[in-house]
């Protein structure tokens, strides 16, 4: 710690480090960030960590309540469902489906959205106005409704759900990239490099992108919390992950059958979704807060 102070005056931290320094000041945000990392680790390594297979039925232990209940069994820490499947293992596997896939979905739509958005920022006139209106229309249709319609076109299933959510998220990235790029393009330093003879693509990649990347990443956290909720909602409605997969939303809808008899089959997946979304949102909030603070300082 002492060393930091020595170097502070000599070395001005890079924008990212600055961001991180502000970001880590808030303990709540750091808890969120820790949870986010935890979920990421779980999403990648859950097959190695789970005590049981997520689809294996233990017919001798149907509907066991969680271990802290009197009727519970310590070997099934969070209880079992109506087919005797271990809830803990299913929830852990579900992390890679609901949380992990939402991450991938966001990355894909981010890449596509940013490309389209930055190209469209370079257009002008009627084309630009049409695109603007078109984006407005798409953005004002509820995202879940749009996803549902796309699923209806493609047919139910996990793959199709993911594509549907990618398609729904793309316009949001297009919108934010487009506005951010347009805003940057009016700035003097861009004009300077244009005067230096840089082409549009070069300006985009060397001057604009480094300055808007934080905005996009903070949009990405928003998008991810929306993606988690959408994947789970579609799974809940029976349009997403097919039956044996332990996707959280699908697990929850499976639990509804036994809502009154085995409430933990409903509580636990819901809490898992809540946990993942809160963690994501905390990271996003922290990031937005840090960006704002850095601007002010």
């Amino acid at each position: 710690m002492a060393r930091h102070k020595i170097y502070q005056e000599e070395e001005f931290p890079s924008p990212f480090i600055q961001l991180w320094l502000i970001f880590r000041q808030s303990p709540v945000v750091m808890i969120g960030f820790g949870s986010f990392l935890f979920l990421t680790v779980l999403a990648v390594f859950s097959p190695l960590l789970t005590p049981y297979s997520p689809v294996e039925s233990h017919l001798n232990s149907l509907l066991l309540p969680p271990a802290w209940d009197d009727a519970g069994d310590i070997s099934y820490l969070l209880g079992t469902d109506n087919l005797g499947r271990d809830m803990l293992s299913r929830l852990m596997h579900g992390t890679s489906l609901t949380f992990g896939l939402s991450f991938i979905v966001v990355i894909i739509s981010l890449v596509i959205g940013v490309i389209i958005g930055s190209l469209s920022a370079l257009t002008k006139g009627i084309k630009s106005s049409f695109l603007n209106h078109f984006l407005d229309v798409i953005l004002s249709i509820p995202s879940l409704l749009l996803a549902i319609v796309i699923v209806a076109i493609l047919g139910p299933g996990l793959d199709n759900t993911l594509w549907a959510i990618v398609m729904v998220l793309i316009p949001q990235f297009v919108h934010i990239t487009r506005n951010a790029v347009k805003e940057e393009l009016t700035k003097d330093y861009v004009l300077a490099s244009r005067l230096d003879g840089a082409g549009s693509l070069r300006i985009l990649s060397y001057s604009v992108f480094p300055n808007i990347i934080e905005k996009i990443v903070s949009q990405a956290t928003l998008a991810q919390s929306a993606a988690i909720l959408d994947i789970a909602a579609l799974g809940f409605l029976g349009l997403g992950a097919p039956i044996p997969l332990p996707e959280w939303g699908a697990m929850l809808s499976n639990g509804i059958d036994l809502f009154y008899i085995a409430p933990w089959t409903v509580y636990l997946p819901g809490l898992a979704i809540l946990f993942a979304v809160v963690a994501t949102n905390l990271v996003g909030e922290g990031m937005r807060h840090a960006i704002r603070q850095r601007k002010e300082s």
Partner: peptide
């Protein structure tokens, strides 16, 4: 009382003899 869950159990049983079951329930 619960054909869907019955289908899931059968799905798991038939997996053991290499039969893949798609459940149609919507």
């Amino acid at each position: 009382p619960n054909a869907l869950t019955t289908a899931k159990l059968i799905q798991a049983d038939l997996q053991q003899i290499g039969v893949t079951v798609n459940i149609v329930s919507n």
